[in-house]
Design a binder for these strands. Structure first.
Length: 175
DNA sequence: CCCTGATTCGC
DNA sequence: GCGAATCAGG
């Protein structure tokens, strides 16, 4: 678009008359963004803006991605060995029985004790919680199974059976 | 969803 | 410099 002196003069006049940017755009047959952009570049007096932009300088040019709230890991689960098969988190685990059993178990809640760091490291063996994902990641209801994991494995027994599939058997699930 | 103005950023 | 895209409030 060619901003001739005449068009700029007309923009200035309409702007001074207090017309909305969209209205100026309509009259000049240009988009309101053109009007706003040009007015901004011409340092025309700003209109009362409906939006409030934080004037304190600490503003990231790109808003930070929304963080997902909710549980992340069930506990300090010891990943003793690499997991051969990652479960499909979106697909319901085959075998409703184990799913039902898992759902009925209360999810592990991280306990943050502010006033008592006193709890001495007990000799109590921490049983790692099963890391099998339950629900849709990113949703508030998402959690991990949390049942006691099998010895040296990140999953409880029913979930370990799903997770650790023998190579021969796996070929049959391939749709 | 309509309106508004402001800012960003690829062109 | 331009302005569409995007943002953000009414």
């Amino acid at each position: 678009m060619e901003w001739t002196d005449e068009i700029i003069a007309r923009l200035r006049q309409l702007w001074d008359e207090g017309l909305s940017t969209a209205e100026i755009g309509r009259r000049l047959n240009i988009s309101k963004n053109s009007v706003v952009g040009k007015a901004h570049r011409l340092d025309l007096p700003a209109r009362p803006s409906p939006i409030r932009r934080d004037i304190s300088g600490a503003r990231p040019s790109r808003p930070a991605p929304a963080r997902v709230t909710g549980p992340t890991l069930p506990s300090l689960a010891i990943a003793a060995e690499p997991v051969p098969v990652m479960p499909h988190v979106t697909a319901a685990p085959a075998g409703g029985a184990s799913t039902v059993a898992a759902v009925r178990t209360a999810p592990p809640r991280p306990t943050l004790v502010a006033s008592r760091p006193a709890a001495p490291p007990r000799a109590v063996a921490r049983v790692p919680a099963c890391c099998w994902p339950i629900g849709e990641p990113g949703t508030p209801s998402f959690r991990f199974c949390g049942d006691p994991a099998m010895n040296g494995k990140p999953y409880c027994q029913p979930h370990a059976e799903i997770a650790y599939v023998r190579v021969r058997d796996r070929r049959e699930d391939v749709a």
